[in-house]
């Protein structure tokens, strides 16, 4: 218990500087195609029995990490990104949160 399977509980270190996208470690991939089935953004294709992630389509949702039985998916930086991250500033706590 307390051990996470798949996606690590915290985002990668660079998540506030570059948008994280997923990448397949080719040596580890067993070609089970589970990540292809779970991706909702048409980002993953099988090429020569190995999953390949199209970084332009990847929105970094993290679902493929959850489906991979051999932990073959890792985070990489999308360095082609031009804009900084979008952070919403709540304006001195004027918005009340919570249930």
């Amino acid at each position: 218990m307390g051990k996470y399977i798949g996606l690590k509980p915290l985002p990668p270190d660079f998540y506030d500087k570059y948008p994280p996208v997923a990448e397949v470690v080719v040596e580890r991939c067993i070609g089970c195609e589970r990540c292809v089935k779970i991706c909702f953004f048409d980002s993953i294709k099988m090429i020569d029995k190995v999953a390949f992630i199209n970084k332009d389509n990847c929105t970094g949702c993290g679902l493929c990490f959850e489906s991979c039985p051999v932990d073959a998916i890792v985070w990489v930086k999308d360095e082609t990104w031009q804009n900084g991250p979008y952070i919403q500033r709540y304006g001195g706590g004027s918005v009340e949160f919570g249930d």
């Binding site: 996470y4 399977i5 798949g6 996606l7 509980p9 985002p11 998540y15 948008p19 994280p20 996208v21 589970r34 929105t59 970094g60 949702c61 993290g62 679902l63 990490f65 959850e66 489906s67 991979c68 039985p69 979008y86 919403q88």
Partner: peptide, 21 residues
């Protein structure tokens, strides 16, 4: 507008045993 921007990552399947397919 900010709700149209999504954090990365943003999905986690807790207690999901992926080895059980």
């Amino acid at each position: 507008d900010y709700m149209r921007y999504w954090p990365r990552p943003r999905y986690k399947l807790i207690d999901w045993d992926k080895k059980m397919n």
